[in-house]
Design a protein around this nucleic acid. Structure first.
Lengths: 67, 67
DNA sequence: ATCAAATGTAAAGCGTGCTATACTTTTGGT
DNA sequence: ACCAAAAGTATAGCACGCTTTACATTTGAT
């Protein structure tokens, strides 16, 4: 699943470390999400969406093909 | 995580079997979701939201406390 | 060019989402 | 009351999200 995390994190001028802390996950998790290594759980998706004050739908792009 | 799946399924007058088929998962999964046994993956959340033509946020209620 | 901060890779381990199968209970129409 | 359809419970097993730790590479300021 594609996402706009890196883009939004840069808009907010945060490092991966800072975002990880704000969201409450490890830095590895942020790196993996930004690089599309795996899909977030719905809880993580909600937390990220709150960190950026956006809808899940505005951050994560669902693609029916790939699943 | 709470959700409005049962409520929406009944509005649409569908059985669990029918919803399962439409969403593309097993009937067990629908039962477990309706009864709050576990959280959906984000892919499943997207599929359910499309089945009902709603936002994820309108179906699943995130509660910071519980995670 | 140097050095620290930021980003990335690798890999083992745990918890949990989801499936499949089989069986039981509830609901509702006649 | 009877019967079928719908809903529910139980359980084993696999896949994958996320963590932790350790190390490597890239970036950018001076």
């Amino acid at each position: 699943m594609e996402n706009r995390i890196r883009e939004l994190r840069e808009e907010y001028k945060m490092t991966q470390q800072e975002l990880a802390k704000k969201v409450g996950v490890s830095r590895q998790t942020i790196i993996s999400l930004e690089n599309g290594r795996y899909n977030p759980s719905i809880n993580l998706a909600f937390k990220v969406s709150k960190a950026f004050d956006k809808l899940i739908e505005d951050i994560f792009i669902y693609n029916e093909e790939e699943d």
